[in-house]
Design a protein around this nucleic acid. Sequence first.
DNA 1: AACATTTGACCGTC
DNA 2: GACGGTCAAATGTT
Length: 310
Amino acid sequence: METSRKRPLINELTQGKELTNQLKDYLDKPMSAETCELLVEGILSSYEKALSMLNKGIAFDESPISFGEISPTTEVSDPVDSDSRNVFKKRKTDAKWSEQVKVCSGTMVEGPLNDGYSWRKYGQKDILGASHPRAYYRCTHRNVQGCLATKQVQRSDEDSSVFEITYRGRHTCMQATQLSKALEKTPKKEKENIQEAKPTQKMHIEHGFCLKPSKGVNTCEEVLFPSFLFDSTPIETEKLENLFYLGCDSTTFIAFNHNLQSSDSDLSEMINSTTNSQTNSPMADVGFSLDYVDFHGDILFDITDLEKFA
DNA sequence: AACATTTGACCGTC
DNA sequence: GACGGTCAAATGTT
């Protein structure tokens, strides 16, 4: 990997290291559970971003920024930031990398796909020599959490379905991790409301299982929900809702573990117990294969996929 | 009412 | 002085 592509990666890993050191320092002192949790969230977030960069093959910026200039301390706690006259001096010291995002024509009028963060547009400029204006976004949580991350979005001249996105600074807010955490802890009813408000979600996945029916059945629904197909008994989906993220078509069922408290063996066991628990069904003894799947990446999923089984 | 976007003005850099 | 980035008042949306 060339040097320019390594930079944001090194940056994320270094931040993870720094947060780990902070956590280590705290171990000798009295520490609230909340502080501990925040540090751990930050560490996990850094490593998830680093892994995501490796998986996505982001095209990082080629500008010559030295590693020292993009250390998190200069970005986050810069005391002169409140003085607007110093904003321009600070620009050069921000971590900066770019990414190209291709979108289907007609699906996105105002900008490219959700990248997992919430942004507020604060400006737009016509750029010399460019046929499309450049839009400027900053993190929605700038005022509340002091998050200084910004991004610029510009439609490509060559291919108008491509958006060139330049990110500046690093998110110091906890929005993404808080969201997934809230989804895990929120009771079912509230969870449904959250999903309705934001139908597309991004989730980081390490690994999971791929289930395929092997004999006597045509679809995964018949394996997992035989009662639904053969009598009027209510479907027992509680376990699935708590343990699985689903991605599937009619013949392949992919289960990802998004419950941090559950191990992969728990997940495997849960699939087996779910498929065997439908003892009233004539399909209870159907065979299926269960394969381990390595994934290591972020996926965007449509909430309506989950609703198929609810 | 609260929040998000638009847009002309302003400011620092080159 | 031109250009790019940001501010902030006006306007739009929910």
